[in-house]
Design a protein around this nucleic acid. Structure first.
Lengths: 340, 340
DNA sequence: CTGAAAGCGCTTACAG
DNA sequence: CTGAAAGCGCTTACAG
């Protein structure tokens, strides 16, 4: 393998000059530069990046930790991150944790061991103290999820209020027996959306049958199975608010397979406004998250941290929106009322 | 930042010993080892991995180049890759090209510049000579896509025969006016599947109206739009074979929006057997690719290459399967005939 | 504008 | 079982 000193010899210059041609060409005279470039092309020299990284202490790599690469939701957030990263000369590498905290820790170690210049977390299973300690020493931002009182830059929507909005939509349509399929309850996001659901129910003085809250695992299948459970109840709900669109689609399927129709027999609200939510029938009423913008904003903040700029604000709340489609059987008149 | 020599000093040993404790603990006496580990824990020392990589010329990272991280198909292949990688002590980093050849080249450069020990390509827009040259010097395997005569280890199904099988299914159901929505025609895979379609048509002496072949871009939207075009033809097709499930779903939606019913008025076959294909209504008849296994096999081969083992065979063909569901209106009897 | 030299933080062959 | 020393391939402050 050719190295810089070999190129230098062939071009009759010092290694320092070759280095300059590559990294600061304006410091080298035109003729010398051309001579060096010719040799580089001729022998197809590629600098050894790890050596450069080692020397400069910069990797020009940012790490994104994703809980589930398979998810239509996260892939949109990723796109936002990627675009601003690439535009600023950074490579994005993805760490898929598959919702496993051990894998999450491994990826975080990449950062601690300086294999990346910064990190954006799309999930945080770690506890607050840990995260804050890492954040003190390394550029890091949290996106999608908000951890109460966490002193780390965060970009997300207000999940509690969005979930409240979604539940209230059902209430306004006249439903009183409203169930909720949560995400894994050890995930903050799941608890936040459940909180929103509870707030809405309570503020309208509706009882929450404890059997109406079922824990899913984000998957279509779990939405399907939990809905089957709900429908088998002695006093089954007439509406379901699901943590995400995946599970909402599972809920609709479960209703159909039980001989019920959505929205007539079971109204369903999802969350995320994933592509498929407008393809499936009935089209899902759901909460839109500005996925791309969340990713974009998160990466912009990370860039600032990497460049040593200070961030005055820690918490960035993005705008969500209730998208009313078919799965709750709403009508255009109603749409007016629910706009907030 | 604490470094190895600092730890050494605190533990009253040489840096070499600290290094051994970390990488070859069996070379160090129990007492010394414990003394060093105590210091490491006490000061929370993390080795500087880039320095190690630089020294050992190993990154323990493998790079996967994905054309579209958003795709439900590729994410399953990724899982197969990840699992065997992680089990063998490798980190997987993902390079999303967004179908852009420039981004593909950038990621390949990561390999050439030794930032990864090997690479699996889930797409190959580069030409054969380029790929072979890289493959001679660096561990690399190609998955999902097969390039004729390419001397690089490859794992894929036989796309031509699968596409033929899918088209023949339509023919057996009595269709003669069968359209095909291709992927971008500069992608090998698109040409392969089109070839299978053409072979099936020709071997059954069916004409292919050139307007029956429409080029899509993998997306739901393009499937939708191209189907609208097909249906607007003076002599519209009664069946469509789409390059993938995404576009097949778009085709179904287009039929519905045109007041037609699938499968009665328009039969649709997809490709990939993506999760959503069994959720959407009508359920898609499609070709199953063993996604996870393709990824697994590809990573196993890559590991062999990295370890300097030789691979006797270059071309690994995985088994596909025609999955008959609702979107072509087939019946159980027919299922028997089409099993191959 | 260019070169000589030091040094980034590890690992490993060698010697004892 | 342990240490001294060389060296991986670059970059950069310094000198000229």
């Amino acid at each position: 393998m050719m190295k810089m000193s070999d190129v230098a010899k062939l071009a009759n210059v010092s290694p320092a000059t070759v280095s300059r041609v590559l990294s600061n060409p304006e410091l080298v005279s035109k003729e010398t530069r051309q001579k060096v470039l010719d040799v580089i092309n001729e022998v197809n020299y590629k600098p050894h990046i790890v050596a450069r990284q080692f020397r400069t202490k910069e990797t020009k790599i940012i790490l994104v930790v994703v809980p589930d690469i398979t998810s239509a939701f996260f892939s949109k957030v990723l796109r936002g991150i990627e675009h601003v990263a690439v535009n600023n000369g950074y490579q994005v590498i993805l760490g898929d944790t598959e919702n496993d905290i051990e894998r999450e820790k491994e990826y975080i170690n990449l950062l601690l061991q300086k294999q990346a210049d910064g990190m954006v977390l799309l999930t945080a299973r770690l506890n607050k103290t840990n995260l804050e300690e890492i954040s003190e020493h390394f550029p890091m931002v949290l996106a999608c999820e908000y951890m109460d009182g966490l002193n780390v830059p965060t970009v997300s929507i207000d999940n509690i209020s969005s979930a409240r909005k979604a539940t209230e939509h059902l209430i306004k349509l006249g439903h009183t027996k409203i169930a909720h399929i949560t995400g894994p309850i050890n995930v903050i996001l799941s608890r936040d959306r459940m909180r929103g659901y509870q707030q809405a129910m309570m503020s309208h003085e509706l009882d929450i049958d404890s059997a109406y809250i079922q824990e899913g695992d984000f998957s279509f299948e779990s939405g399907y199975n939990q809905t089957l459970k709900l429908l088998a109840l002695e006093n089954p709900p007439t509406a379901v608010f699901a943590f995400n669109d995946e599970m909402a689609m599972g809920a609709i399927k479960a209703a159909k397979d039980s001989g019920l129709k959505a929205p007539e027999d079971l109204a369903v609200v999802g969350f995320d406004n994933v592509k498929m939510s407008s393809v499936i029938e009935p089209n899902l009423t759901t909460i839109n998250q500005p996925k791309y913008e969340i990713g974009k904003k998160a990466m912009e903040l990370l860039l600032k941290l990497i460049n040593g700029e200070s961030i005055n604000k820690k918490k960035f709340v993005m705008k969500d929106e209730l998208i009313i489609r078919e799965s709750c059987g709403s009508n255009p008149d109603l749409k007016e009322q629910t706009k907030m």
